[in-house]
Nucleic acid binder design. Structure first.
Lengths: 255, 255
DNA sequence: CGTTAGGTTGACTTGATTCAACAACAGTGG
DNA sequence: CCACTGTTGTTGAATCAAGTCAACCTAACG
């Protein structure tokens, strides 16, 4: 399939903006062994307590990290898009401390743990690039803490929309016209730490005010500036200066 | 100074549990150049938007990371103890995406950016250990998201107490009898994403129930098991078992 | 078709906020 | 030594954002 090498090249290019790579580094990345796998929406890629056998690269579709409390409440921690590794940490830490679930049907490549360990042992610059990548993830977690801790549900929801759209855009995965957020209201609720019922009301409120226009799960934003203002969105935390934008490409988001 | 080398040795020992180091690695860490600095409580070590000139190692005192929203609300993201680096990420990313403030009066060592970069370039295992260290920070951020997003203020506060005590204990910094949490109620509030008034009420409630015993800011916990239960505390996310994750044959289950 | 997952809406409750007053205390300087 | 000032902690009363419960609607699908 062309799609695999296409995504791998995209990921290599992303890493090159994190740290300068030489030809050997690029080649080592492109020649990583992998196993292709299809995962349908809502299935688990990683479970808390697992000792992952490999790192997972998303080729197509979306995934999210989550934890559930002892009371059974789920909190979504981050959303990931094609080209993202979703458990590099699982390769370096011993056990997974959270779950990873497919948000939509996904195509993934599983790279054996030993191959990753060998790669980072022998290619310092690749390791460096991956480290920077995980540091950017950290920054996104920090902003997420602010989002659930100190923003109103209105602002938090707008912030989620802003972050997601911006990341898709930079990855070259957004359609120019609108933007399809393939999350159920329950998932949005779990991302914001509120209830699905309340998500519904806030969405309607934003729609009534004209900040967003909904058509099923597709959301159009007529005025990004206005939405960013409500969200208090400052994209510094995405560290886009360490990410060179990429030419657009269609992503199938079949939920 | 004895205190400096004492903390540096402590930090080296911590790193050794993240990745195996050889004599050269240890020496390189211990011989890092640094500049000593005293910082009084509440002063900033790093400001959002800064391009840090170096990494900061806490020698004595506590510090915390925070962000403020456009509405002026502060959210505390993590608390750090002696032996922690508080802006390794600032050395690898270009600009700081959050603030770091001294929680108490602090003694810190500032290690020039170039020295860190040189160190990680020439000592792969040290870089690896630091990477793992930042991955554990990530895990703590994830748990923090759950704490503010999906736990009641009661449970969240108890969880904060559990995490803090456990980390101090592992670092060998806790006094056996009780435990002094040098945070104001306002800071606790900013850590949990609630108001100081509410923190006050919850503390009193916990005190009334006998879960904690307060004397000024010193908190004694008569029954950790009970507190952990209320908190829903599961220390897996602290990765306290983290030992030699990298050995290629490390597939053998050693727990 | 019936079944199911997701979405919508109203009525009511609650956990947490807001506002405001006051108490305890530490530090400062006259 | 005491008055003054600022920070932190405490408490009550009123209010509000979000949660809960429950009914019902809609579209997709085997």
């Amino acid at each position: 399939m062309t799609s695999v090498s296409q995504i791998l090249h995209r990921t290599v290019r992303k890493f090159e903006t994190r740290a300068p790579l030489d030809e050997g580094d690029r080649e080592a990345l492109l020649n990583l062994p992998y196993e292709l796998r299809s995962i349908s929406a809502n299935r688990y890629m990683v479970r808390e307590g697992d000792r992952p056998r490999g790192a997972t690269l998303i080729l197509d579709g979306l995934a999210f990290r989550q934890k559930v409390t002892v009371e059974g409440m789920r909190q979504i921690l981050s959303v990931h898009i094609p080209g993202d590794f979703v458990d590099l940490e699982g390769t370096l830490l011993k056990v997974a401390d959270h779950n990873v679930q497919a948000l939509t049907d996904c195509e993934i490549a599983i790279i054996p743990r030993e191959a990753i360990i060998d790669l980072v042992d022998t290619h310092a610059k690749v390791a460096h690039a991956m480290w920077v990548d995980t540091l950017i993830d950290s920054s996104i977690y920090r902003e997420w803490i602010v989002n659930v801790g100190r923003r109103s549900s209105r602002a938090g929801l707008c912030h989620l929309l802003c972050e997601f759209s911006r990341r898709l855009e930079v990855a070259g995965l957004s359609e120019p016209g609108g933007y399809d957020l393939p999350m159920t209201q329950e998932q949005i609720a779990d991302a914001l730490g509120i209830t699905p019922v309340h998500v519904n009301r806030v969405l309607r409120e934003l729609d009534d005010e004209g900040l967003i226009v909904r058509n099923k799960r597709a959301i159009r934003v007529p005025n990004w500036t206005a939405l960013r203002k409500v969200a208090g969105f400052n994209e510094l935390y995405l560290h886009l200066d360490q990410v060179r934008p990429v030419a657009p490409m269609a992503m199938s988001v079949s939920s």
